[in-house]
């Protein structure tokens, strides 16, 4: 039953991974801004928390 559970999850995950790998290629080729809709506040909150953590450490030789 655990195996059935995993196989079921992996079918969906494989679709996600295929999409994310294609997305990564597009991200590397893009310098445009993302466009977020009203439903995506959860993403912005994740990004806000991520950026707040990055500010806790400053590495030398920063180059953006």
């Amino acid at each position: 039953m655990l195996w059935e559970h995993l196989v079921s999850d992996m079918t969906v995950l494989q679709e996600d991974i295929d999409c994310l790998e294609a997305l990564q290629t597009s991200l590397a080729a893009s310098d445009a801004e993302f466009i977020h809709g009203a439903y995506e506040t959860g993403l912005l909150e994740f990004h806000g928390a991520y950026l707040a953590q990055l500010e806790t450490v400053h590495l030398p030789q920063q180059e953006v």
Binding site: F34, L44, L54
Partner: peptide, 17 residues
């Protein structure tokens, strides 16, 4: 809504480090 991250946050070694 204005984005907080850019594509560079997902692709560059600087942000990874």
């Amino acid at each position: 809504m204005r984005p907080l991250l850019t594509p560079a946050h997902y692709t560059t070694e600087h942000w990874f480090a």
